[in-house]
Amino acid sequence: VTLFVALYDYEARTEDDLSAHKGEKFQILNSSEGDWWEARSLTTGETGYIPSNYVAPV
């Protein structure tokens, strides 16, 4: 399991995006899409895309 933590708040801009709150942890499901990674929030269980530069490894 690849875990990352949000460094900043991010507000989803499309229905495919996933909002993130600073300190929230995510499981990365797919990081092969360049700057946008598919992730699952460990807080809400929701999945979507987050900007890779907004997260760091735990």
Rank of each mutant, 00 (worst) to 15 (best):
D35F: 13
T44I: 01
E15V: 12
P51A: 05
A39K: 00
E33A: 13
I28T: 01
G48M: 03
T43M: 10
S31R: 13
E15K: 13
S52L: 05
T43D: 11
S31W: 13
G23D: 05
D35K: 08
D9G: 02
E24N: 01
F4V: 14
G48D: 00
E11I: 13
I28G: 02
T44Q: 01
T47Q: 09
Y54L: 15
P51G: 04
Q27N: 05
Y10G: 00
S52R: 13
Q27H: 11
T44E: 01
A12I: 03
G34W: 09
W36H: 08
G48I: 05
A6W: 04
L7Y: 03
H21Y: 13
N30H: 07
E38Q: 13
E24R: 00
L3M: 10
Y8R: 07
N30D: 11
W37P: 01
Y54N: 08
G34T: 12
A20G: 03
Y8S: 07
N30Q: 08
A56K: 09
Y54G: 08
G34M: 10
T47N: 05
E38L: 15
Y49P: 01
A12S: 09
A20L: 15
L42E: 07
Y10F: 15
D35V: 09
F4Q: 04
F4N: 04
T14F: 14
L3K: 05
D16Q: 14
G23A: 00
R13W: 07
G34I: 10
H21R: 14
D9W: 05
H21A: 10
A20R: 01
L3I: 15
E46I: 10
K25A: 07
V58Q: 06
D16R: 15
A56T: 11
A56Q: 09
A6E: 05
S19D: 08
E15A: 13
E33N: 15
E46M: 14
E33G: 14
S52A: 13
T14S: 14
T43C: 14
E33V: 11
A6Q: 02
S31G: 09
S41C: 06
Y54T: 11
L18S: 01
S31E: 08
G45L: 06
S32D: 11
L18F: 05
W36L: 11
T44V: 00
V55Q: 00
L29R: 03
T44M: 00
T44A: 01
K25V: 15
E11P: 06
L7M: 08
K25C: 14
T2E: 13
L18K: 01
D35T: 09
N53M: 11
L42C: 15
V58N: 04
E38F: 15
D16H: 15
F4R: 04
A12F: 03
Y8W: 12
V55F: 14
R13T: 12
I28Y: 02
E15Q: 12
L7C: 12
E33M: 14
V1A: 13
S19K: 06
E38G: 03
S32I: 10
E24L: 03
S52K: 14
H21C: 13
T47A: 06
R40V: 10
S52Y: 08
L3Q: 08
N53A: 14
Q27F: 14
L3R: 04
N53G: 10
S41L: 02
W36I: 10
P57N: 05
Y10L: 06
D35A: 10
K22A: 11
I28R: 02
A12E: 02
Y8E: 09
A56S: 09
Q27T: 09
T47P: 00
S41K: 07
D17Q: 15
N53T: 10
Q27P: 01
N30P: 05
Y54A: 14
L42Q: 06
R13G: 09
G34C: 14
G34S: 13
A39I: 06
Y10E: 01
P51K: 07
T2G: 12
L29N: 05
T2A: 11
V1Y: 14
F26R: 00
D16A: 14
K22W: 05
S41A: 04
N30K: 08
K22N: 04
I50E: 01
T47L: 07
F4L: 07
N30W: 07
S32V: 10
Y8N: 06
A6I: 06
T47S: 09
